[in-house]
Amino acid sequence: MFLEIKDLSVKIENKNILKSLNLNINKGEVHAIMGPNGSGKSTLANVLAGKEDYEILNGKINFKDNDLFDLNIEERAQEGMFLAFQYPVEIPGVNITPFLHSAINSKRKRMNEAEIDNLSFAKLLKSKASDLGINIDMLKRSVNTGFSGGEKKRYEILQMSILDPDLAILDETDSGLDIDALKIVTDGVNKLKTKNNSFLIITHYQKLLDYIKPDYVHVMVNGSIVKSGGSEIASEIEKDGFQKFQ
């Protein structure tokens, strides 16, 4: 199994958020999680990425034959996990280019691959940016600083395509994007898709799933997955909302 979440219960500030959550993802699969606001979707994404504010009450997570809880934040990333944040943080003064360059090299180092030099990296970054319709000038700016909502999301996808992860988690990447930007971003995701990597796509609109076809759709309500199935579930939600799952 590629990612296996078993009986996961998580609490923050005396509030139980995730409750005995189970989820399995195989290599090459695209999974979607849909759920109303506050159901715990971002919490799940953050716990997977290793955010330390949460208390893990119970459960196990296996990722690529590792106990995920044995890996710290950067080790998870270096092992091929990537989270496109719902709310990417602004980091003034940290330039995008050297930061991403150092990030990709720390991953290569862990994988015993040769580091990528300045020139090749600059080329790679430029070509990926132009694929995503990102202005070259934006690459000179500080991480997310002063970006519009849409620019931030695009920039998350740019980082994803540079780091080429095995498991990409997209937390409401569609929100804040107009239809043209949504097309560009989902194109980027589809291009990256191979039979060796997997996607976990978090959204609460069905729209995104018109562009990225999921193999499985899960409904998350109140910290647990209450229903799983194929893309027909997304259509059900589109029609009737989350009401009937609650």
């Binding site: 710290n72 934040i73 950067e74 990333a77 270096q78 943080v89």
Partner: peptide, 18 residues
């Protein structure tokens, strides 16, 4: 130091110290 910024950078593979 801004913990959210640290988390963001680490989640891209950068070590905590870096």
């Amino acid at each position: 130091i801004d913990e959210n910024a640290i988390f963001y950078l680490r989640s891209r593979g950068m070590s905590k110290i870096a």
